[in-house]
Design a protein around this nucleic acid. Sequence first.
DNA 1: CCGCATTTGTTCGTATGTATC
DNA 2: GGATACATACGAACAAATGCG
Lengths: 229, 229
Amino acid sequence: MIQKTNRMSLVEQVASQMEQLIESGHWTIEERIPPEMELMERFDVSRNTLREAIRALVHAGLLETKQGSGTAVRSASALGAALQKHVKKSDLIETLEVRLALERQAAQMAAERRTETDVTQLEACIRHCQDAAEKGDQEAFITSDITFHKTVVQASNNQLLIDLYEHMTDILYSFVQELMAIDSPFPYEEELHIELFEAIHKQDKNAAATYVERYMKALKENVTMMMEE
Amino acid sequence: MIQKTNRMSLVEQVASQMEQLIESGHWTIEERIPPEMELMERFDVSRNTLREAIRALVHAGLLETKQGSGTAVRSASALGAALQKHVKKSDLIETLEVRLALERQAAQMAAERRTETDVTQLEACIRHCQDAAEKGDQEAFITSDITFHKTVVQASNNQLLIDLYEHMTDILYSFVQELMAIDSPFPYEEELHIELFEAIHKQDKNAAATYVERYMKALKENVTMMMEE
DNA sequence: CCGCATTTGTTCGTATGTATC
DNA sequence: GGATACATACGAACAAATGCG
């Protein structure tokens, strides 16, 4: 069978391969990729062809070039970069509302499909949250909190939903970090986490949705308050 | 104050401008854009620079070049193209589940925020659906059906949600078209549309969510049946 | 601080393949 | 088949930024 990809332009072939290398994690984030000269030899193409491929990935948000310095990986996913660009033009509240939509759906599906492994993982996440809260370690707490939510979504077993949610959350996180500078009076709704966990554990679909809604409502109010200050 | 990054690369400047032209609808979809020579003069850059910019947009899915023919607009949005690529690797069911998440949230928000204009628009959409159903015009019906759902989401007044939903729906639509070839035994849940409309009209948030869930459940079952055949 | 090597940025020229008329 | 227009690909040259000794 003849490979149809002979019809794919050289630039596309090179760009695809590089994209693969990035998304597969072979070229990790913030890492500098080999210089043009070396890549020319590796891919056996001319400099212009290679440069066009690099330009495509730069425009897609995957790479970042600096004259005189080199080219580095900026994002591991084209979808994430596209979302980020789009979200930057949007309202923070709008983004939160979309995140709520995704997490509620995920929580319901998690309640339906969760495995024993999911349950033990969620328990571990909650423990991490509690530990960080007791120690008063803000940063560690926020990280564990995010991990908890991501783990809930992962239990939904819907890869598209997982990807969208994680990108959305990462973007939100970096935004919130910019917004609230150093000190962060982030209230911990510990009960809500535990209740959500138990709803998933008991496979109670409606309860899971309700707790996500409550959590998100509280979060939304916090953010609006933060923005008014 | 010194301008920090007036040093945006020429290629990026050109690519951004072209992206603007596409997203603003100045270059409409499927339309062929001016040949390289003309664009070189308009942007006052060399051929290679222009080509790199075009390549970037091609890789982003906004443009499509054909040797000997020219360059045409393929998609009006970078996010849409990125989503499409990602969705193609996903399951149809997964995509439906995400769409449910978005539409349920949108319906709730529409119930809360809908204006009188939204109500009259939704009424018009329902009438179009009914007309098409009476005439037995499958294609017109599906189009009106999609328009109805998009109108519901638009009433949510959340631009990010609207964009995501519309891209998702367009992708789903093109998929379903491929899947079901010519004849399409697409069942019309007329009551559900009307009930959803009335819930939004009466600003009943919970009812709106319920009807979207029911509608999506029916749709999911139809799709699974279609795929098993 | 200077000079140098490295690396990316920009431009031009040339040859070839391919679709359209 | 021929003419034209466009896209593809390569090579070469110089400019500009960066980092190092």
